[in-house]
């Protein structure tokens, strides 16, 4: 960890302005991922802007019948909110399947979206990694590499890392939007799909945020009726990242939506695949995972994703 300067701000627009103004600045909220990355010198911010005092701590109704979740709402608080538990069950379940109680108490809604991949080669700074050091190469694609946990779709020849968030998978299936504030003070709103970028030739670019831009809220649309489920498959029963996770909302008429975690650089959903849900897990996954490029070690995720969805569908 390198030495850094630190300030607290009380206003989101001020935070964004400061972030654009101070070289090497980063926001810090819960710090559950950033501090680890700083210790490893994967992230080397020169200046930290603490945004926990920006007042974005509330969950409030929107005019559209949904909820606006402030970016500083802690993962524990979000998961436990009665409105979330009642109307957005998939989100509550995804949240509590992530990390540990201690981490969820610290981690924020905005920070969760911005956590970095857990690819082991990204974490070992002696290893080439295009995400960490653009152009350095990708150790995970080496001949002797291990890639069991890594991505099978949406990846590129430069990077096969996955996005680790459970919360984001649920937000994707809920069609949540993200609200931000720019250094100019202007605000904007993006869909979650627009927010995350695929690696392509620039795996270091993970989202659509511009320099200084800060997430202020996640906006949940009006509740989608039906069955909400989140199934996270992992090697141990708790405190592990997903091999595959499936977020499902199934409406009473048999239609529905599916998003996957653990398989791609972003929460993985294709609206055209959702249309196949009434035909079952195989039909849906044929569309959702069409074009997958797994490695030998992680090809099982194709089967696992299908069988996990089948398990959820069979639980009715």
């Amino acid at each position: 960890m390198r030495a850094f300067s630190y300030e607290r701000v009380s206003d989101p627009a001020q935070a964004a302005a400061r972030a654009a103004e101070v070289p090497g600045a980063k926001f810090i909220a819960g710090g559950t991922n950033l501090l680890d990355l700083m210790k490893h010198e994967i992230e080397i911010p020169q200046h930290l802007i603490d945004v926990t005092g920006t007042g974005l701590n509330d969950i409030t109704p929107t005019s559209g019948g949904g909820l606006r979740v402030g970016a500083m709402v802690r993962n524990s608080g979000l998961a436990a909110d009665p409105r979330i538990r009642r109307d957005y069950g998939v989100l509550s379940r995804a949240l509590v399947s992530g990390a540990s109680g201690q981490l969820r108490n610290k981690a924020t809604t905005g920070g969760n979206l911005l956590q970095r991949t857990r690819c082991p080669y990204f974490y070992d700074t002696a290893m080439p990694c295009n995400k960490r050091a653009p152009g350095a190469g990708c150790a995970a694609l080496g001949d002797g590499a291990t890639s069991r946990q890594l991505g099978i779709i949406g990846t590129s020849d430069r990077c096969i890392a996955t996005h680790p968030s459970d919360m984001a998978v649920a937000l994707r299936v809920l069609d949540a939007d993200i609200e931000t504030v720019m250094p100019s003070g202007k605000t904007r709103r993006l869909t979650l799909d627009e927010f995350y970028r695929l690696p392509g030739d620039t795996p270091e670019v993970e989202n659509a945020l511009e320099p200084g831009e800060m997430i202020t809220a996640v906006v949940l649309p009006a509740p989608v009726e039906g069955r909400h489920a989140y199934y996270k498959v992992r090697d141990r029963a708790s405190y592990a990242f997903a091999l595959v996770s499936v977020a499902l909302i199934k409406t009473p008429d048999g239609s529905g939506r599916v998003a996957l975690g653990g398989v791609a650089p972003k929460p993985w959903r294709r609206e055209e695949a959702d249309a196949a849900l009434p035909k079952g897990a195989t039909a849906l996954m044929e569309r959702l995972l069409n074009g997958a490029r797994p490695t030998q070690e992680n090809a099982f995720k194709l089967t696992l994703a299908e069988r996990t969805l089948a398990a959820l569908l069979a639980q009715e």
Binding site: D124, A139, G142, G144, A145, T146
Partner: peptide
């Protein structure tokens, strides 16, 4: 083990 680089990943 990474069989090319020789360490436990």
């Amino acid at each position: 083990a990474d069989l090319e680089r020789g360490f436990f990943v």
